[in-house]
């Protein structure tokens, strides 16, 4: 019997939970999860949960890394940006390192999800890279829809292929496969720094996923710490993830 697990399950049941995943690190999960959450919050209330407990980046992206969450009777209260509610472990411990044995990792993720006062029906989750305790704990609590992110590089595709296999086998619904930072625009020309996206296309066909190829936007580095004001090409491209948005309208 585990009261925190039961509490977390009840809290997230009936919510639409989108988890931004990749078995590879450094592919831009936090940035994409944050931009997606920002875009969706223009239509309705959205919660963004940062479960990348060792590499918390969400609060840094919004310039909130030194803020601490308030705690009320209902639990951990979010940082608010208009209709976006942000929850992060970073907001509990501040800007310092975290090191946890596996068993405590489970407890931290479970309690964090259970005690966060998530009132919104739509929840975006920024996951850590790889497949481990955080992914198991998340799926023990709620069945998310996965959005899988990769780079076009052969190395990244190869690691992500295994994650897609696991997700399929575990019946975790996955609709979007995103190739992030795939090209840089130089005038009318597209330069592909990680090579062609052909392998990603093949993988998306194999797993019946919608493929989205995103550009690299050098401008975005100016918005780290104030992502809420970014209105560049990535934001526009993310709004084209139609399915996710039309679901929310229903």
């Amino acid at each position: 019997m585990n009261p925190m697990l039961e509490f977390a399950r009840k809290k997230f049941s009936g919510k639409k939970v989108l988890a931004v995943l990749s078995s590879k690190g450094g592919v831009g999960k936090s940035t994409l999860a944050s931009l997606l959450a920002l875009s969706l919050s223009e239509m309705g209330s959205v919660a963004l949960l940062d479960l990348d407990i060792y590499g918390n980046s969400v609060t840094k992206l919004f310039g909130m890394q030194n803020k601490l969450h308030k705690v009320s009777k209902e639990g951990i209260e979010p940082f608010k940006l208009k209709k976006l509610s942000i929850f992060s472990i970073n907001g509990l411990i501040g800007d310092r390192y975290l090191i946890l044995p596996g068993s405590q990792e489970r407890s931290v993720v479970e309690s964090f999800m259970a005690l966060s006062n998530v009132e919104e029906d739509t929840v975006i989750i920024d996951m850590p890279p790889g497949m481990g305790e955080e992914l198991l704990t998340l799926t023990r609590i709620v069945k998310p829809e996965a959005i899988v992110v990769t780079l076009a590089s052969k190395l990244s595709i190869d690691v992500v292929r295994k994650m897609l296999e696991y997700l399929k086998e575990s019946s975790i619904r996955t609709r979007y496969f995103i190739v992030n930072m795939a090209y840089i625009l130089s005038g009318d020309r597209k330069i592909y720094p990680f090579g062609s996206v052909e392998e990603a296309e093949n993988l998306s066909k194999l797993y019946n996923l919608k493929l989205k190829v995103l550009p690299m936007d050098p401008e975005i580095s100016k918005f780290i710490g104030q992502l809420q004001y970014y209105d560049g090409i990535l934001k526009k491209e993310i709004k084209e993830l139609e399915c996710l948005f039309s679901d929310l309208k229903k």
């Binding site: 411990i93 090191i99 946890l100 405590q104 931290v108 309690s111 005690l115």
Partner: peptide, 9 residues
């Protein structure tokens, strides 16, 4: 107080 499992950090 909130998440005692943080202790090892």
């Amino acid at each position: 107080h909130l998440l005692p499992a943080f202790v090892s950090s």
